[in-house]
Every structure is written in C-alpha cells, then in structure tokens.
Design a binder for these strands. Structure first.
Lengths: 193, 193, 193, 193
DNA sequence: CAGTAAGCGAGACGGTACGTCCTGTCTTGGT
DNA sequence: ACCAAGACAGGACGTACCGTCTCGCTTACTG
C-alpha cells in the first residue's frame, strides 16, 4: 500500500482561481500578454503556488483547455445524416467564432501556445477533429459520397480540414461562405449535380 | 520641387548583418529566444538601427523569409508527371527536414512567428503551397487522377495538405512514410489498383 | 591619450534621486527595511539603473554617508581649550541624537550596514574619531592633562572612546550624563581636585 | 487552582537540533545567510517548531550564545598578576581568533545579529568585559599601575577596550601586535621605564 | 485506560524582494 | 542623417524566504 505523506494538501480553491484568472487574461489580452505575475495577481495567489504546480504558462493554458475554460462549446459537429450539409454548417459556426473580433486573436493565441506545448497542439487537433466526430462522420459517409471510399484515410483527411482552418487563421484569410463551400468540396468531393 | 533629405542613406551592410544575425539566432535558439538585443549584439549594430527600420522582431523574421535566409531550399515540388509520386517524394523530403532534431523546433518557431505576423503566415502557406506549384500541379493532374476533377478547389486542397503538415508539427506527431502515403491518398484519392 | 567611449553618460539626476530615496527610507525604516525595489520605486528609477552603478545596497548607503545625506552635522567636537569640557559637551550632543527615538535605530542600522561594508565601518569610526579632531585634540591636551602624555597612543584612545559608544548602542544602554562623565574620566583621567 | 494542560512537553531533542543547526550555519555562512527554513531543514524539524519557541532568528542566535555554541572558549583573561602582560596576551589570543579567515566574518555576523537583538549586544559586551574579569582586573590593578586609580571608572574603561575591538572589526582593520600594544597602553597607561 | 490536547515533521499558502533579462526610447559623439 | 554604443524607466522572469496555516502522527496527562 502506498505511503502517503502527511501535511497540507493542494488547495483546490487556489487551483481554480489560477485557471480562471489565466483563462480570463488569455481571452482578454492573448497568450503573449498572459504573464505568471498577472495570473497570480488576478487570482490572489502567490507566484510560488503557480510554479509549484505548473512548469510553465503553456501548461496552465493546456489545463484550461482540459477544463473547457477557453473554447466555446458550440463547435460540435451536427449530425443530420447529410455530411456535406453538416460540415458546411459546422465550418460556418466555426467561421463566426473565428472571424469575430475576439476570435481571431484567440485562435492565434492558441496556436502560439501550441508551439510551446504539444498537449495544446494535440488538443487543438483533437478538439476539432477527434476520432469520434469528424473522422468518424467522414468514414460513415463513405457509402453515400462517391468521393469517400472505405479505404480513404479519414483521420488524415480530417486533419487536413482542420489544418486548413489553422492555416487560414495564421494567414489572416477570412473564412467566408464561399471558402467554406470550397473547403467542403475539397474534402468530400463535388456535390452531385 | 521636393526637398530631398541630406545625410547618409540606409546602410546596406547593417541591414544584411541584422538579417543574418537574426536568422542565425532563430535557427539556433528559436523564435522566443530571439531578442532585439541579441540581434544587435551579434550584428554589431546599435539597437536603434534595428528599431529605425523594423517595427518588431516578427517583421525581421518576415524579411529573413523573403531573403530565403531561413528555410532550406530543397523543398521544391518535383515534376515527373506522376502527381502521386511527386507529392510523396516532396512530402518525404519535407519530413526529413521537419522531423530532424533542428527542424521540429524551427518549424514551431516559424509558426509562433506567424501568430504575430500575417506575412509570415502567408509565406508559410505560399512557400509550400503557392499557386505556381502545388495547386497548379493538382489542377494539372485533373486529367489523370479520377479523384481530381476540373472543378475541384485546388487552392483549398493544397492548403489543406499544408495545413495537415502544420497540425502535425503542432502536435509533435511524426511524419513517417505511412503517414505520407495516407496524406497523399487523402488528397489525390486512392491509388488505382 | 585615453580613448573615451561615446554614448549616453551617467545620469546625475538618477544618481541623486537614488541616494535621496535611499537616505529617506534608511532614516524612516532602518537598514533592513531598505530594499532595492523600494529605492527604485521612490526614486522613480528602474532597478537596473541601481544595479548598474552599485553592487549592493550597502554601497548605496556608503555613498549616502559620503554625500552627508545620512548623519546630522552638529556632531563636530567643540574647541574651547578645555578638553574635558569639550569632550563632555560633544558626548552629550551625541547622546541627545543617539538616545532619541529615531537615533537609536538609526545608529543600529548604520552598524548593521557597516557589518556588510568596510567603508561604512571606517566612516563610522573616522567621522567621529578622525585624526583631525578627536585624536588631535587628545594629543594637543597632553600638556595640560597629566593622564595624557606625549607617548599616549591617541588614535587608539580615540577609537576606544568611539567603540564604547558603539557598544552602548548595541547593548541599548542609555548614554546619560553620569555615563558621559565616567567615559570622559576613563579616557582623559580623573578631574584634578 | 490552575488547569494544567495535557499533552507532550517541549522536545529537548528538537530544541538542541535547532540550536546546533543554527550555530553551524551561522559559523559556515554568516548571519544573513542564516534562514529559518535552512535551520529547519538541517535540524530535521518543522518550521512551526521553531516559530513556536523563538520569535525571530536573532533570538535563536542569542540562545546559541547562551549555550556557548558560537564563540570559542579560550578567550578567558589570564591572571598572572601582571595586568599589562595579561591584557596583551588576552588581546593577542582574541586577535588570532578575530583575524583568522573565519573569525572576521563570524564577528561581523555577531555584530549584525546584535543590531537586531539587545541581548546579543549585551552578551557581546559582557562575554568579553564582564564585571568578574576585565573590569575587576582593572580595578585590582589600581594599586600597581599609576595610570589606574581607585576612582577610575573601570566598567567604562573595559567597555572602551571592547568597543575598540568591535570598531576594528567593523572597519576591517587588522589587530596586529603593535596595535595590541598601543591599545594596552591607551587603557592602562604607558609602561614604566 | 480511553479521551484529548499539545507537540511534532512536513509542507502548501499569500506575499515580498531578489538579481537578471529584455523592451522600446533616449542621448552622445563619430563619420 | 545615420550609425555604434549604451543609459534610462519599466515589466516580467524564476528563486529564496517569510510567517501562517493545515495535515496526520505521536505522546503524555486527565478524568
């Protein structure tokens, strides 16, 4: 049986204050204006309490993502049975988030954080394109879409779609409806006439 | 007639020293260890000379990219006529660069720089997927690959491929041969039996 | 001929602000509440400007002493020709300073600073017992005081007197008139009947 | 009748570990590198155990002095009947301690501690010049030394001698044989021809 | 001989200050 | 006018300690 040390235990209050403060500052001012001192001040916490539990600010951001404190929730891929329609709707809802005044910097901040922290990178990929949603839907559509076949590498295809979004964020290209349509076409093939 | 200003003009020597110094430090230590003071010191230049001509360090990096001082050159898409073979070869040569010890951090640094500077983001996209190479080759292959049709949105397809690479870099996923094959399949369709 | 470097020169304004701020805080709160950050804040100066010119806070205090920013001025040994009377008057004026509410901590702070910085120690000794005043007066009195002879080691005798003061400060013993008289007697011998 | 509390009494083991650890660190690294956390760690003791029994680190040092854990023992004033010889021998033995590599910092550390704690100051004075040794010997010599008379204020004279030592430590002046001789002469008068 | 209250080790906590690094602006003297 | 050099005010870094506060344990007195 494991020997547990005695003494005080990690303060859940402090932990949550830190994550909330970090998420707030991140959303308000972006990743590179997110500082340990700022988090500590807003959370009402000593810096050491942060350094005790997280090795770097990117790890705090990663934990914020885990706690769903950073990204809006309405990004789930809908399921009407029509993959083309669902993808279009999903990309458009993403577009409204990403192309908003606050969304662009937020996404860029997330990508910046991902360059320092692999977990954030993976979460960025998975939270959009995880096996249970995007790739799975693509596989499920193999029967109805001639462009998609049973041996299509769905995971890579999903990744490519998400990657296209990332690239548009990085190049500040707008994600308007025409682009959404072309992206859907590029991935699932042209619409049947 | 306009009064032309007197005094010396911009020193080309200083400009090139600065870009070289920046490129070296960037390659050696990454974007976030790249500092104005470090550049000035290595370039043997006053800080003011840097601030006089560039508004931020990301703009210096952007100009380094323009001068081809940062990225290796062998990334041109080959052209044997076989799009599938060419893409595979191209991706593998990218993989050797990107999966090397120095390549991973360098790519992540570039992405980090892109989050601060739209030009870098665009250049990242275009230098890999510009209209004259990747997208053009995809369009040209429309005749031979059944998966690619005249109305396929090549630009977005090319972007998706590059985006997939970016996403793999961010998530530190290796880019081995099997992944390359699947990516090619995802983009240009399954190989004909 | 010496090659002088170009570039900006040390700011006299900053230097004086720092010394004033340090002297104020020292007088108000004592040596161990004197912090580099506190000095910088009150002086309206960056910390680096302090560290650029002084290796430690004790050196700032030493320079304050040099600039006569710390100790009151009325401590000069009077000269009426009567060494016994002059010493008594001088010690009493020191006593009023040292035994005041602010004087005790101030002297202790100076001693604390002296433990970190030999210059302060020497200045503490000399500013009270330097060759031109105390020791010189003792020597000059050799003719009139039987206790003092030409071969009396005046410097050490002066040092012993000052040392007695330091020791009283360290032990928080009051320096009342009776003690002053006994000290004078101990140093220059009993009064002639 | 008072309600006597129950529970364990103060741990003598802990008390001694703390004092030993404090004395060791004090001797090795000086008063300002002596920290409560360092003492606790070396003593294998919780910080609270220290704070429970001592209000500040200077009080720990004071108690170390009481337990004779800090100062070497050989500083007793010898007694051969010849006050001049005894004083000289005593001062020289102090000089070998004080002018050694470790002695100088140790004495300065003690003085630093004394600035925070009156007990240490008094002990510094008394442990060298207490009524039963130095002052008493001076009084006893009143018969044989013409410089010393029955009404000489011995206590202050002893204090002055010790103070001279303190001042030399503060100003980092060496305490060589010539200085010792002059100090003795200053205190007990010139040697008889 | 339980109950219970204090001492103990460990160490998390909110803080303060440290000394360093870098930012972007400015000043100086040289070319 | 431009440059190399670098001082300046300021902000953040990551570390060291402070003194207080839990924790779970052991110990010794008390009813």
């Amino acid at each position: 049986m494991a020997q547990t040390r005695s003494g005080p235990v990690r303060s859940e209050v402090a932990r949550r204050s830190i994550l909330s403060a970090a998420a707030e500052i991140f959303a308000e001012r972006g990743y590179d204006h997110l500082t340990i001192e700022g988090i500590a001040a807003r959370a009402g916490v000593g810096k050491q309490t942060i350094y005790r539990w997280w090795p770097s600010k990117s790890d705090i951001v990663a934990e914020c993502l885990l706690e769903r404190a950073l990204l809006p929730e309405q990004l789930a891929l809908p399921d009407t049975g029509d993959i083309r329609h669902d993808l279009t709707a999903w990309l458009r809802s993403i577009a409204t988030v990403v192309d908003s005044d606050s969304g662009q910097p937020l996404m860029r901040s997330l990508i910046a954080a991902a360059t320092e922290n692999a977990d954030i990178g993976r979460r960025l990929r998975d939270s959009l394109a995880d096996a249970d949603s995007l790739a799975a839907r693509l596989r499920a559509a193999a029967g109805t879409e001639p462009h998609l076949r049973p041996d299509t590498p769905y995971v890579e295809l999903a990744e490519a779609l998400v990657g296209a979004l990332v690239l548009r964020v990085l190049s500040r290209s707008p994600l308007d409806d025409a682009v959404v349509d072309r992206l859907v076409t590029a991935i699932v093939g042209p619409a049947r006439s």
